[in-house]
Design a protein around this nucleic acid. Structure first.
Lengths: 207, 207
DNA sequence: TTTTTCATATGACAAATGTCACTTTTTTAT
DNA sequence: ATAAAAAAGTGACATTTGTCATATGAAAAA
């Protein structure tokens, strides 16, 4: 099995290479230390699996993964990260990564790679059990990609909690009419019809 | 690694045993063919992983898993099923299973077992990529635990898709008034105020 | 300084929504 | 066949919601 390792921390990357290669059937084609490198290295080596860190200086692992997957939908990206950061997990799933495991799960890495190569997905220890809870908190909705300001985001969040206009108004110290206007314009921007659709959109928007 | 196999189809179970044992480090402690047997066998053998089918005569794999996990929170249950039935996937995640893989992914089973034993979770091929969508289509909301009938469920589903009363009515061949009445009673049963809260509830209710 | 933009606000209006008290129809049980 | 229960429907009513045109004050830009 051929893999490419991307990790901010050179030492970690090299150690991983040593350990994984010693397990026998894993061959590390290359090592990189940033998202940019990941994007470059992928098409060159076409690894079976890309083992990548998320938090890195420069382009993050997630961005890199997005780019790689955009060019090759079948790319198998396995994120290997230090702690289970909620936001990242969901995002990773959304972009279509094949897994999200923790560096702590040391002996789990090799079998996880194996599993991913066979086409399955792997989620480390606590990660999977957190999934249901996480997915609910926020779909893969990316406010920034629409032209939606801060106050509008705030209002969307409250609508998505089921608050009425009056409640939102009093919570944000606005008049009810203003809240209505905001929502009206949000609906237009997202081409939705009413607040219920907005809530649905909020929870189900996955690109 | 010690496992117990539960499958409705004796032939499948036995074949699995043969194949898995031939891979070397897997030892099949027992074979069962129903949810009831699973519940009995688990405490007797305390396998590292329980490889279990879902659809079985009598008690389903999911029910059995729920019972087993209730008695031993650390039980590792890996579902092995024929097709990726949406409903089952989410439910499996909700009860805390360690994975959901497809029988088709033949060579994937052994590594998946390995991975699960190391504490990670595995989701077969298309399953993981479907997860975001699925989680949203239905949280772990259990209609039956409330006093909610079939037609009501249907209506809830439609509200949670953002349809108006009129649209729901025409889709279900009911009058708009009837739909209103249904929703009104649903809201009362769930102590919610309006359809938006119902949608929110639908997507976020996870126990 | 003047103009423009932005956030906030109003009031009016139509449509959609939720509630209630009943009625009618259909199904099920006795 | 008759009574009882469940499912579907009606009409009226008060709110809530979404839309629109327009107004105000403050901040930013000219």
């Amino acid at each position: 099995m051929n893999i490419v390792i991307i990790d901010d921390d050179k030492l970690v990357a090299v150690s991983l290479k040593t350990i994984l290669e010693s397990t026998g059937n894993i061959n590390v084609l290359a090592i990189g230390s940033s998202g940019e490198e990941a994007v470059e290295l992928y098409p060159v080596h076409k690894p079976d699996v890309m083992l990548m860190d998320i938090r890195m200086k420069g382009m993050s692992g997630l961005e890199a993964g997005e780019k790689i997957l955009a060019s090759d939908r079948s790319a198998k990206i396995l994120y290997l990260t230090t702690f289970s950061d909620d936001e990242y997990i969901v995002k990773a799933l959304c972009i279509g990564a094949k897994g999200y495991i923790l560096k702590q799960d040391f002996e789990g890495i090799a079998p996880a790679l194996e599993t991913v190569m066979k086409g399955q997905s792997v989620f480390g220890g606590q990660v999977a059990s957190k999934l249901p809870e996480l997915m609910q908190n926020k779909g893969c909705f990316d406010f920034e990609s629409y032209d939606i300001g801060d106050k509008e985001q705030e209002i969307i969040t409250l609508v998505a909690k089921g608050l009425s206009n009056k409640e939102i108004a009093s919570r944000l110290f606005l008049s009810e009419g203003t809240v209505r206007n905001y929502i009206s314009s949000i609906l237009e921007k997202l081409t939705l019809r009413d607040r219920t659709q907005l809530a649905v959109f909020y929870y189900t928007n996955i690109e």
